[in-house]
């Protein structure tokens, strides 16, 4: 009896969490006006790709999609490289002021990114980077949480492994590439999915620094589209689906690492 009740409850919560996605998918395949009727339709009477045609042919969603994809991949690759180098150094090298430096970094994680946005905008403006890819890439070059995550993981790598390689005559850079990086694969996967999703889903910063329709990332393009098409749920649902589908795919492929990352991030220092 208790077992049935618990499963029923879990099932109801699952319906509540998934229903908006179901409606989004369904409405995106409806004709104009078919999603704005009462009582609502849950399944399209006539399946159509009109909304997607509109988005790809008349609106610049293709370039928005590639902006999002290109920037998310590039920021992920660069920040993973920078963060892993720094995280490894924090875990395995001795240098004066290390603890202090690391603590300063950790405690500055409390500073909300909105604080940096005005000066960063002015800086990028003076460099001529507003409305270019650089405006998104530059603030994403490295991040403190990433360095922290890599460091935690590196601490568990035995020093003997590194010492043995050094006795064999390997230099530090070789050790990092050939020994450390392969060991870091799981945490790099975790960080990759965090960074990719974070960049893909980011809204406020791209809204500030990207000013042309063709430069917009998907979330900015979508919010802009909403201004003109607030009465076209079918079109907006198609746009939303295009925006969330890639992140859902990435998440499903790497969910194990994502869940682990959340748990790692929550472990107290």
């Amino acid at each position: 009896m208790k077992k049935i009740f618990i499963h029923l409850l879990l099932f109801v919560i699952a319906i509540l969490t998934l229903f908006p996605f179901f409606w989004m998918i369904s409405a995106s395949f409806m004709q104009d006006g078919h999603a704005s009727v009462f009582p609502p339709r849950f399944i399209p009477d006539e399946f159509t790709l009109t909304q997607y045609q509109k988005l790809f042919e008349r609106l610049s969603i293709t370039s928005n999609f590639f902006n999002s994809l290109f920037l998310s991949v590039l920021v992920t690759v660069i920040s993973l490289t920078f963060n892993s180098l720094a995280g490894y150094a924090f875990a395995k090298y001795k240098f004066s002021g290390k603890e202090k430096l690391f603590n300063v970094l950790l405690s500055s994680m409390i500073i909300p990114s909105q604080v940096t946005m005005l000066p960063l905008f002015l800086m990028l403006k003076s460099m001529g980077f507003i409305n270019t890819y650089m405006a998104i890439i530059i603030p994403g070059l490295a991040n403190i949480f990433g360095i922290f995550l890599i460091r935690q993981f590196c601490l568990s790598i035995p020093n003997s492994l590194i010492e043995a390689a050094r006795i064999d005559g390997a230099n530090d850079f070789y050790i990092y590439i050939k020994i450390i990086l392969p060991l870091l694969t799981p945490v790099l996967a975790t960080l990759a999915i965090f960074t990719f999703l974070g960049t893909w889903n980011d809204f406020l910063w791209p809204l500030i620094v990207l000013t042309d329709d063709s430069m917009y990332t998907l979330p900015v393009a979508l919010s802009n589209l909403m201004l003109e098409h607030s009465k076209d749920p079918e079109l907006m649902m198609a746009g939303s689906l295009i925006t969330v589908l890639p992140v859902i795919i990435v998440f499903l492929a790497l969910q194990k690492y994502y869940i682990k990352g959340i748990m790692m991030g929550s472990v107290k220092e």
């Binding site: 908006p20 979330p219 607030s230 907006m236 939303s240 925006t243 859902i248 969910q255």
Partner: peptide, 17 residues
């Protein structure tokens, strides 16, 4: 977990409808 990973702007639009 699905809502957590999906783009805030996109799901906010879904919820508006």
């Amino acid at each position: 977990f699905m809502p957590v990973v999906t783009t805030l702007v996109a799901v906010a639009i879904v919820w508006r409808f």
